[in-house]
Each structure stands twice: as structure tokens, then as C-alpha cells.
Amino acid sequence: MSPATIWAWFTDPAQWSGADGIPNRLAEHLAYTAITLLIGLVIAIPLGAWVGHTGRLRWLITGANAMRAVPSLGLLFAVSMFVGPLIQSDLAFVIPSIVVLVLLAVPPLLSGVYAGIESVDPAARDAARGMGMTGWQVLTRVELPCALPLSLSGLRSATLQVIATATIAASVSLGGLGRYLIDGLASRDYVQMVCGSILVAALALVADLLLAAVERYAVSPGISGRSVGVARSRSSRTGEGSRPDPSGATRSTSPASTAT
């Protein structure tokens, strides 16, 4: 197989239209990823913020992190076999996959938000309360903005993990870019597999770079400027203990906060 065959595959007009075409597969993949991350954020932000702010139920974070040891492929098959038969429509493939993807996305998101809030300078938190901020104001005006770098690190981890696992989910009949890999494997169409892989890798790279750009834009320069180094050494130090590194997902550690 040469670059020419790969080029020929990509330039074949048949690849660019219809349900099997690249635009549709890419759109599906993006849709799964977006839905999963949206659900994951809806779960993880309030939960992580609440645990970080109140310091209660910290075992939730530990538990979520322990879940990362479950092999995603196994989880995918187990949930599909359990949930799939209960659903009598086309969604029979989609729902179990989304459930698994959410289960995989939540731990990095959750520990990102939690670790971010936990890393807020206690003096800043004390000052915020002392000057008369309500608990909600402390959370929204001080803790969450300060937690943004680690939260976004978590989001990058989760995004990569979801993009990768959505590929695998083609083996339980989910659409998306994974179809090229799984279908190619079944029909021994090696060119299709390689081209699919290139697409997935490219998507993952682009998504990660986009999120890195968002991180640069969204995080206050007061935090990203000099304190990035502080946050980093702090998280590596907590890594010594039993708690895994907040940004270290089992599948994907994002390159985390890009070096400035």
C-alpha cells in the first residue's frame, strides 16, 4: 500500500457522498462526541463543583477515578448486551454507546473540575468569604474561574477519550469514523482501514488543538501567566498520593495546559 492508494481513496468522489461518505461519518462522530461531552459536563460540573466547594463526598472522585481502570471495550460490550435488547429501535445501538461514552467522559471531567476547585488558594477563598460573598458567589466568581485551567485539562482528556472510544464503538454497530476501521477489518479492505485511521487521528489532533486554543483564550492571564507553573507542580505533587493525576485519564492524558 502506497501513499498513492491512500490518495486515490481520499479523492474518490464515492467517499464524499452518501451515508458511507466521509462528511456523514465525520458528522456522526462529531455528534456522538458533542452529545456525550454535553451530558458529561451537565453531570460533572455541578457534581465536581459541589464536592470541591463543600469538601463532602470526596470518595465520589476517588471512585470515578478507579472506574478508569475498567477496559472501555469491555464496558462497551457489557452495556450494549445489557441495554441493547431493551430498546426496540435504531437507537438500540446508539443509546448503549452513548451511555458508555458518558461513563468514560465523566471521570476526567469530574476530577478536572474538582481538582481545579481544590487547588484554589485557600487565602483567596478565605478573603472571598470574609468580604461577604455568599457561597454561590464564592463558587461562581472565585472558585470556578480559578478552576478553569484544570477543568479544561479534564475536558481535553475527556474529548480525546470519547473520540477514541467512539471509534471502537463501531464494533457494536455505532456509526461514525470507526465504521471504516471495523468494516475494513471485516472485508479485509486494508486501505479503507488506514484511511479511516488517518481521519480519526486527524480529528483527535484538531479537536485537541482547538481546545488548547480555547484554553488560551478563556483562562485569565492572571492564572495562566505565572501560576500555570504553580498549578502544575502542585498537581504533580498530589500525584504522589493515592489520587491519580487529575488530568491523567486511563486512555488519554491530554497534553494538558499547553506550555506558554
Partner: peptide
């Protein structure tokens, strides 16, 4: 690290 395992 961003390259999905199956693709790699």
C-alpha cells in the same frame, strides 16, 4: 497521545 489506539 491524542492518536486513538485502534487507529494507531
Amino acid at each position: 497521545y491524542t492518536i486513538p489506539s485502534l487507529a494507531l
